[in-house]
Amino acid sequence: MPRFASFREFYPFYLSEHSNRTSRRLHFVGSCGVLALLAAAIAQGNGWWLLAALLCGYGFAWVGHFFFEKNRPATFKHPIYSFVGDWVMFKDILAGKIKF
């Protein structure tokens, strides 16, 4: 996996690793689940929902990678850029910049 000097350099690579529409949809659904579970954690004051949010987000994403993209998630080599990439792609899908 190549090295990146900035997130701006990384994001096109990140998008290329998410070219499969089903994979992108799984990432989007997982991110929606994360937001819902974070809201539950705050509303109920229960930190266990944070663990559920983590499992939800990565679970949906990794199914997309392993079964649809047939690649390894960038999380393993670029955890911070990958995390940011998930949320930028989520925003771009919501804004209609990336096809859902």
Rank of each mutant, 00 (worst) to 15 (best):
F68W: 15
E9P: 03
F68D: 11
H78F: 15
L51G: 15
N71E: 15
F90Q: 01
W49T: 05
G64K: 07
F60H: 00
L51Y: 08
W49N: 05
P73R: 04
G47T: 10
R8Y: 02
L50I: 13
V88T: 12
Y58F: 15
L37N: 02
A52H: 04
S31P: 01
F90S: 03
A43V: 09
L26P: 09
H65K: 08
D86M: 11
D92K: 08
A61Q: 05
A43M: 11
L51H: 02
S82P: 00
A36I: 13
H65Q: 11
S6C: 10
V29R: 02
L35N: 02
A52Q: 03
H78V: 08
S16Q: 14
G33W: 01
I80N: 02
V84A: 15
H78W: 14
T22S: 09
D86R: 06
R3L: 15
Q44V: 05
R25P: 00
G57Q: 01
H65D: 10
G64F: 10
I42R: 12
H27I: 01
I80M: 13
H78N: 14
G64P: 09
F90H: 00
G64A: 10
F66H: 13
W48N: 12
L35C: 13
C32K: 06
R25L: 14
F67W: 15
Q44F: 12
W87M: 07
Y11H: 08
L37R: 05
F4R: 06
E9N: 09
A39L: 14
G45V: 10
P79W: 08
F13E: 11
D92P: 10
G85K: 04
G59F: 06
S19H: 12
W49C: 01
A52F: 11
H18K: 04
A52W: 05
S82K: 00
L15G: 01
W62C: 00
F90L: 06
L54D: 02
G30D: 04
G59E: 06
A40R: 12
Q44L: 14
V63D: 04
G45I: 12
F28E: 04
S31C: 06
F83H: 04
S19E: 15
R25I: 13
F7H: 05
C56F: 05
A74E: 00
W62S: 00
F60D: 01
S31T: 14
A36H: 09
C32A: 12
A41H: 13
